[in-house]
């Protein structure tokens, strides 16, 4: 491994190379004071570089030691299958749709929902934000929701309606399966449901990127968040963006960050997408916006 791979600033890298340190081994063998003198930097900076170098070279050697995987960080298909058996789903409140999806919206995965205006994308989004909160004794997840609104179409009145209906459904479910449990009514109040939906109103693509970066910290602080809904991913990226290459890169980066988030915190990510018309083979057809990245 070479010096160029070290996560240090360009000028320090230049100094290292100028002082003749081209391989990590060479740095690892040097002492901090030597390094500081050769590079003409302070002792603390030199020991920092030394730390990074030893860390990097030890990371290279480690894979031989691990037993299960040939390459670090991988997972066998069998393990994956076993893990999937225990993965949790968020119901869409629609049996047919749940069946198609194999149980509902899956945690640890990114789901995209696209459609023409007025078809009900926001409705599904709100529905999921409420359904994720169904307590575990009713077959739900009992988690919280983050709703990222880029279009301003989130309606609290509608959330309240859906929350009320959801509580009614739960009461009915209770009635059917636990007839003797009369005394224990559903304790949830619509306000509890509203309280557990974290709403972010994003007004520009910069804010959107910043929020996605920040989510990592936010979810760490609010561990019981089980779903993140982005309504919609596309809106700000479709408004006057000249540099298409930059747009593509930013979108890909955002998608990767969201996937990582889904995996690390075991939560579901639902992205709503708009449609656009495309000219294909002589006729106009509807396709998902930002489809061809």
């Amino acid at each position: 491994m070479e010096v160029g791979m070290l996560p240090i600033s360009a000028s320090k890298r230049g100094k290292l190379l100028a002082a003749g340190y081209t391989s990590l081994d060479a740095i690892a063998r040097a002492s901090p004071t030597h390094l500081a003198r050769d590079m003409d930097v302070s002792d603390s900076e030199a020991s920092e570089i030394l730390n990074l170098a030893t860390k990097a070279s030890s990371a290279l050697e480690r894979p031989n030691g691990t037993h299960a995987a040939v390459v670090g960080g991988g997972q066998t298909a069998w393990d994956m299958l076993n893990e999937e058996k225990f993965s949790s789903y968020i119901t869409t409140s629609c049996v047919d749709l749940d069946n198609i999806l194999g149980g509902g919206i899956k945690c640890k995965e990114v789901t995209e929902i696209g459609g023409v205006p007025g078809i009900g994308k926001t409705q599904i989004g709100i529905q999921l934000a409420v359904n994720v909160q169904i307590p575990q004794e009713y077959g739900g997840l009992g988690g919280k929701a983050i709703y990222i609104d880029t279009e301003g179409s989130f309606m609290v009145e509608r959330v309240l309606q859906i929350a009320e209906a959801c509580i009614e459904d739960m009461a009915e479910y209770r009635h059917r399966f636990h007839k003797d449990f009369q005394a224990c009514d559903v304790k949830m109040h619509p306000n509890n449901i509203l309280e557990s939906i974290f709403y972010f109103r994003v007004c520009s693509y910069t804010e959107q990127i910043a929020l996605i970066n920040y989510l990592d910290k936010f979810v760490t602080e609010n561990k019981d968040v089980k779903i993140i809904i982005v309504d919609s991913v596309t809106f700000h990226f479709r408004q006057d963006f000249d540099d298409m290459a930059l747009r593509t890169r930013l979108l890909c980066e955002m998608a990767l960050k969201l996937m990582k988030l889904a995996k690390n915190f075991c939560l579901a990510i639902v992205m709503l997408n708009q449609v656009t018309t495309k000219h294909i083979e002589g006729s106009f057809q509807l396709t998902l916006a930002l489809g061809k990245r």
Binding site: P7, I8, S9, A10, S11, K12, Y147, V156, E157, V159, L160, N191, L194, E195, S196, I197, F198, Y199, F200, R201, V202, C203, T206, E207, I209, A210, L211, N213, Y214, K217, F218
Partner: peptide, 29 residues
């Protein structure tokens, strides 16, 4: 011209400042 760690922490900070405030739906209502 700084190291990766500094950039990462600076970007985390920038992101936190830029990102819009969080509100619960109840608060909105």
């Amino acid at each position: 011209d700084v190291g990766k760690e500094e950039v990462t922490s600076a970007m985390a900070h920038v992101s936190e400042v830029v990102c819009p405030p969080c509100q619960t739906a109840l608060l909105l209502l």
